[in-house]
Nucleic acid binder design. Structure first.
Lengths: 338, 338
DNA sequence: TTTATTTACGTAAACGTTTGCAGCAAATCG
DNA sequence: CGATTTGCTGCAAACGTTTACGTAAATAAA
């Protein structure tokens, strides 16, 4: 089977490769009649331009990369959904990479992407990441980057986040209003910006109601969920006075549910729980889980749009283009009074 | 900033581009001493090969495409996880495309991929797809394809599926054992192979227990969940004798929960429900949902491995390489006796 | 010593596309 | 009618890499 490319089309049409190329790109320098002929044959032969040749020549890949910790998580899944939508509309392709919250893997991925495989990058940094040299080097390679959700404060670029501080404050206040006296806070990594903001909201809300923050009530979760269950169990046994839990991430809220079931603590009578979550079935849990839900789809879509605008105009993304979207607190039975 | 490529490295080292290229690829035709020098400078200059130039020249992209209906679904999210893992290990990149179960979009995506952007394709077909010409044309372009879960029977290639017939049979029998007399079956599209298998399992299980299948109890869901809720409500109101539901997909099981809540039907006392699902929180639902859970991660990983083997050896994927993995039935309270 | 063989490197041609430049008609203008 | 513009097309050089082939020197075989 002979390959179908510009050359073969040109030969069959008795014209130059240049003319065929221009006709297909709808250049004004080629007559309408010729365009018709070219397009007709291209369609007949099912011509598809070689993306790599084009990318090489134009130094444009029409591809963006997405680097995230994991995909088996409703938040990131929805974000990808938004990203893919924005990319598709702009005619871009989406490469996906998972770090599994592993710093070394993140570095390796970013290094490889400097080869020009992508025109731009969307990223939610791994929780283990503390050094950002690899990301900064991307900027030297002139590859624009936009952070979403888990941003890197040290890098001057656009970031798409949610109002994490306010949400943390709001969630904590919600528990206080519901009558909780001793509120625990479960979070993952505290070098993650979002963790810091949410925690600050938690602390400030406590302070605003005259409560003093107890460091013993702040639990740092780990990667492994099984291990988290153990940590939470230990916490609840050590501090039986805990009557409210604010989980900074979905997994921890779920683990807390399991522990409460196991220990026979009734939700919400004995302990009230609220957590960040994009779980669709939150309202079907036993009891329905009160959540702070981030607009994940919009976050992804917005981040992609900002990136693509920069890519198209070949301009750097500016920190000033950052966007903060609002999360929504859904009050359900897990934080009901009494 | 001058570009760092083979040319610039060669100039600085006073050798030819060819030697630099060979040194970096660890060719045996270059002396160890030279390799050292080249590697040292490449590292110092942070050289990253241009992926597109390499792909163009070698006609190999080191990239596979994944075409799936959606990503905001735990099954597909886990599958992507498995795919990414296998791809990463083999040094491949992963392009992702969502069809949203839209046939036209699927065709458009597949068409574009014929341009050689990917070395191979993993696919779970859209529920609206009935014509497979676009997929067959991929094979003409010599792009191997492996289906997973939602396979296309007409295309002779490897498929990675689960034992859908047995699962459908098992789920139905489970409901019968639990005492259900009138079991409804909720499914999406019946031109999807998996739907057919599961339904056949349902029908055969009924027959094996001397029940006659009632077409009125088979509900075909649609894309929109809100609409599905309406359809299910209508079904349950029209047929108050229904005391068991076998949902072929997670969404429909969730919708059924919502309808039961709304209509005051108690699960499992009035109606027992079992459904295909990869929902992590299934055990936390009210009541905990009995599920048939597919090994989604393994499905993705296995499919990717088969594809990558074929890609590496430049051989076609054969139907004989198909794999059937087993799903697991988790019995929970939604199908408890009494 | 001469003749093979091996080793280590360079030359140059691809891969398929895009695009600056030039050419050459026909059309327009002075 | 000559000069200039305009519209269309072709030529050829890129983009950065890989690799078949050639070649010179060094080594081995004769």
């Amino acid at each position: 089977m002979t390959p179908v490319n510009l050359k073969s089309l040109a030969e069959e049409l008795n014209m130059s490769i240049a003319t065929v190329s221009r006709a297909l790109r709808d250049s004004h320098e080629v007559s309408e009649a010729t365009k018709q002929r070219v397009r007709a044959l291209a369609a007949a032969r099912h011509y598809e331009p070689n993306a790599y040749a084009s990318s090489l020549r134009r130094n444009i890949s029409k591809t963006i990369g997405v680097v995230i910790p994991k995909v088996a998580n409703h938040f990131f899944a929805l974000a990808i959904n938004g990203i893919e939508e924005a990319a598709r509309q702009a005619g871009y392709h989406v490469l996906i990479y998972l770090t599994h919250d592993d710093y070394a893997r993140e570095v390796s991925i970013v290094q490889h992407l400097k080869g020009g495989r992508v025109d731009g990058l969307l990223m939610s940094v791994a929780s283990g990441t503390e050094d950002f040299a690899h990301i900064k080097s991307l900027r030297e390679a002139n590859i624009p980057i936009v952070f979403f959700d888990r941003v890197c404060a040290e890098v001057a670029t656009a970031k798409v986040t949610t109002n994490d501080y306010e949400s943390g404050y709001q969630a904590t206040e919600h528990l206080i209003q519901a009558g909780c006296q001793h509120i625990a806070h479960l979070l993952i990594s505290n070098n993650l910006s979002i963790g810091q903001f949410r925690q600050q909201g938690y602390l400030d809300a406590l302070a605003a109601h005259g409560r003093l923050a107890d460091p013993d009530l702040i639990l740092h979760g780990v990667m492994d969920n099984q291990q988290n269950v153990g940590l939470i169990r230990e916490l609840l046994l050590r501090r039986p006075d805990i009557d409210g839990i604010f989980a900074s991430v979905e997994r921890l809220a779920i683990s807390a549910y399991h522990v409460c079931n196991e220990l026979g603590r009734r939700i919400p009578q004995d302990i009230k729980i609220i957590g960040f979550s994009n779980l669709e079935a939150a309202s079907l849990l036993d009891p329905p889980l009160s959540t702070i839900t981030q607009p994940a789809y919009d976050i992804g879509r917005e981040a992609a749009k900002i990136l693509l605008r920069a890519v198209e105009k070949k301009k750097a993304v500016l920190p000033s283009q950052s966007v903060v979207l609002e999360s929504t607190l859904f009050q359900r039975r897990s934080t009901a009074q009494g």
